[in-house]
Amino acid sequence: MTNTSSQPLAFDDIALATEAKQGDKGAFTELVNRYAQRVFRVARHITKNDQDAEDVLQDTFLKAYSRLGQFEGNAKFYTWIVRVAVNEALMRMRRGKNRVTVSLDQELETSDGAIQRELPAETESPEESLSRTELRESLTQAIDSLSEIYRPVFVLRDVEGLSTEETAEMLNLSLAAVKSRLLRARLQLRQKLRRFLKNDDRQEENHV
């Protein structure tokens, strides 16, 4: 479970950050060990590139170390450092180092325009089984296929488990924009991942 297993007590983080501020490199190393994985994952999802993600990871922790004085104990360290990582990743993309062309397929109109209705279940064989690796690759491809507008919102909300408010603040968006982009991202991903969704039981339940 990516959203909970690596979340230590916030109090410990604050204590470590306080020690690190006072020059304890061991305390900072512990923070690195706790959050490098998640920072790398956010960076990789946003940049869609392993090398850029590594660069973002390094820049993030170097900046975090030099800016520890700005970290206030009333915030979660994870939220604080992810904000640094997101800014680094977005900046890297804006500089054009990782410019990508993505299709905005399945654009959804939510006001008075027609919403594309996705028909339920072109079911594949329930017996179909895919390895964890294959699934992970498919999930990665699915996230990578999202446009730059939707991808950061989805990653922060549904991969990293941040709240709508935290995501909005981090990306400098309104709450409504976060919700709207999250809806579109989820619907696009659902369409792409339909073959992984177990639907044999559901079909029986619904067709009564």
Partner: peptide
Amino acid sequence: IFQNVECHPL
């Protein structure tokens, strides 16, 4: 599915 499968291990 995204919450339960960890992509991009470090």
